[in-house]
Design a protein around this nucleic acid. Structure first.
Lengths: 250, 250
DNA sequence: CGAAAAGTTGACTCTCATCAAGATGCGTGG
DNA sequence: CCACGCATCTTGATGAGAGTCAACTTTTCG
């Protein structure tokens, strides 16, 4: 059972964080764990579809995703939307607002999401007292940059079919690493999300996804996308797997 | 005069780094300056067109650009190339290889480039002994991420004309901040570079740039692109300036 | 002087956006 | 329980935007 805080919100103690059991994440020293558990001031639970962070907002907290799916996006004045990346358990959210003052993108939940809330003011302590965690922060930022590089390559230079296959293979691979796709679980996106990620119209996205369905690589259900043949997707996408190194998280 | 090291390469002492005079960069404490100047082990001068870092390489050094233009890019097996971002004085190069083991992109010089070379093994000292510099590293990584977010929005959702205007306005704005565009200096890119940045073919890029030329916003010379009307470009691009906060650099 | 690199332009083709119409499933309120 | 609206997915028709091919000019450089 999760203990209750005075405010009535149940929280998971970092010592019992379920993510730590995953081989995907590196182990913490007890002093690191101790610091993080004091760094964490609470949990935030949001439902599917709610906006976690808003472009232009200042008072951004710093979060780590404990459970659920979300995505980062930007919009132009006339409403055109571009999804930048997807957020999964272990990912940091709001770092930009914390270190650069203002969020330049929004974050929205794709499923019910639980977030660990960190005290922004204590971020300095992290840098002064825990250089290994500070290094992890840099690692995480570099990793996010690597993903964005891949997406840029995809949108800029891949065909629509390659792009779609790449995106789904990417989401599948990441989700599996954090045990988000147990059993018959689907990737919880609509075709509108896919379109806004790939830079295509919904209509064309629909026709492109249909080709992947017809080839038996995926199935589209009312709850999202089910991957049937990840190797086949990877082949269409021209995907190069990037090994299974352990990653840090905070 | 620059002093000569035993190996005969002339180097700029960090204490006299010309970049520090620019209002764009934050001031260092003397202890920070002291550390950085010991962190720096030399300088590397490369000529226009040479590859500074190669995708897949391991033994990446860590560099800061002291002078010149470069760009980061990725390629697919069949040769399709996507330029991810441009690198200017003050920018860090090779962080990815340093913290994540292997470069996932290449870097190529657009002009003669001078780089400060840092000792990778001493990066740990930076984190343990200079938390303010570690914070700067995170800041720089977050800033790079912010630029990539903008480029994704651009490539994914802007029209060809908007994209081209946005790119040039972006380069112009960044270059001015580091005093790279004194006098009649041009942005040293070919239309091939622009095409590979925008995700368009050269032919279509040529026709798109021509429209910007016809509107009197830019001029194309044999040395690159000359900006005539940055406000006009910004308007076509739907550009929102992001203020003039000072940035750190190492 | 010849070759290579960069820019230019027109013709043709194909990808993709837009418009339009319908189908399906779901939640809410009567 | 049904009717209605809403969100999502689907499909076809049409046209605009972007890629490809090809020929030519200009400049650079050995």
């Amino acid at each position: 059972m999760s203990p209750k805080k005075p405010n009535g919100i149940s929280t998971t103690p970092c010592q019992q964080c379920p993510l730590r059991d995953l081989p995907h994440f590196r182990d913490f020293s007890s002093s690191e764990l101790d610091f993080v558990s004091r760094f964490k001031t609470g949990e935030l639970a949001v439902e599917s579809g709610s906006v976690i962070l808003m472009e232009g907002s200042h008072s951004a907290h710093l979060y780590t995703v404990l459970a659920g799916w979300a995505f980062r996006y930007k919009t132009l004045e006339d409403g055109r939307r571009q999804i930048l990346n997807y957020v999964m358990p272990g990912d940091l959210v709001g770092l930009q607002g914390t270190v650069m003052g203002e969020m330049q993108h929004s974050v929205e939940a794709l499923s019910p999401v639980t977030l660990c809330v960190f005290e922004r003011s204590r971020l300095n302590n992290l840098f002064t007292d825990h250089p290994t965690l500070a290094y992890d922060l840099t690692w995480i930022a570099a990793s996010e940059e690597r993903m964005l590089d891949s997406h840029l390559l995809s949108i800029g230079r891949r065909t629509a079919l390659e792009r779609a296959a790449y995106l789904i293979a990417f989401l599948y691979s990441r989700a599996k690493a954090v045990a988000l796709l147990q059993g018959e679980a689907t990737i919880p996106v609509t075709q509108q999300h896919v379109a806004d990620t790939l830079g295509l119209s919904i209509v064309h996205t629909n026709k492109t996804l249909r080709k992947l369905v017809d080839r038996g690589l995926i199935r589209w259900t009312d709850k999202g996308c089910l991957v049937l043949d990840d190797a086949g997707l990877a082949q269409v996408a021209g995907w190069e797997s990037d090994g299974k190194r352990q990653r840090p998280f905070i």
